[in-house]
Simulated assay, not measured.
Amino acid sequence: MSLGDRIRSHVRDNPTGMVHDLLFAVAWVAFVTVLTSTVFTSAPRWAYYLFMLAGIPAYFGFFISLEIAKEQQAARD
């Protein structure tokens, strides 16, 4: 199986998850860019990269808390 076939198969099996991942990444990069260009204008360049790196735990924290909220909502219904 070629790499292209594997990618198409993965996208076909996980379409909404990949869209959520992409939307989160775009929103996080936009947030960090706006934050470092308006609020922290005199911050060193490494602070920008540190904010970008903070997107990894933010991503997992957001989606884990979303799953917990969904489970709690389902338990209440």
Rank of each mutant, 00 (worst) to 15 (best):
P44C: 09
W28P: 02
I56N: 07
E67D: 12
L53W: 11
K70C: 01
A54I: 09
M18H: 06
S37E: 12
G55L: 05
W46R: 02
H10F: 15
G17W: 02
S9P: 01
F62P: 05
D13N: 10
F62R: 09
A47E: 09
F62E: 00
N14E: 05
D5K: 15
S37Y: 00
F40C: 04
H20Q: 13
A58H: 00
P57S: 05
L53Y: 12
L22M: 13
I64D: 06
V32I: 05
V32Q: 02
Q72P: 01
E71S: 05
D13M: 07
G61C: 03
M18E: 07
S9Y: 12
L50A: 15
S9C: 08
N14V: 04
T36R: 11
S42C: 09
M1Y: 09
S2D: 13
R6E: 06
S65D: 01
P44E: 07
F31G: 07
K70I: 13
E67C: 08
R45F: 13
V39P: 06
Y49A: 07
A69S: 14
V26K: 05
R8F: 11
L53P: 01
P15T: 04
F62Q: 03
R12Q: 04
Q73C: 12
A47M: 13
V32L: 01
T33Q: 12
L22I: 11
F24R: 02
H20K: 12
G4Y: 12
T33Y: 14
S9A: 15
I64N: 06
A69F: 02
I7L: 13
Q72F: 12
Y49K: 02
G17P: 03
I56W: 11
L35I: 00
A25E: 11
L22K: 00
F60R: 11
F60K: 14
V29T: 15
D13T: 12
Y48M: 02
S37W: 08
L22Y: 09
L22E: 06
I7R: 05
V11D: 00
V34K: 04
L53R: 01
L35K: 02
T36P: 00
S37R: 12
A58Q: 00
Y48T: 08
G17R: 00
L22D: 04
F40P: 02
D77F: 11
A58Y: 00
R12G: 10
V32D: 03
P15G: 08
V29F: 12
W28S: 03
G4F: 10
R12W: 02
W28I: 03
A58L: 11
T36Y: 07
V34F: 13
W28M: 00
M52D: 08
F51Y: 15
G61I: 03
R12C: 10
G4E: 08
R8C: 03
L66N: 01
R12S: 15
R76L: 11
I56V: 14
G4M: 13
L35S: 05
S2L: 01
T38I: 10
A47V: 14
Y59N: 01
V11A: 01
F63I: 06
R6C: 03
F40Y: 09
P15Y: 09
V34C: 08
K70P: 02
L3E: 06
H20V: 13
A43K: 01
V11L: 15
T36A: 03
F40I: 01
P15K: 02
A75C: 04
S42T: 14
Q73Y: 14
A74W: 14
V34R: 05
A75K: 13
H10D: 11
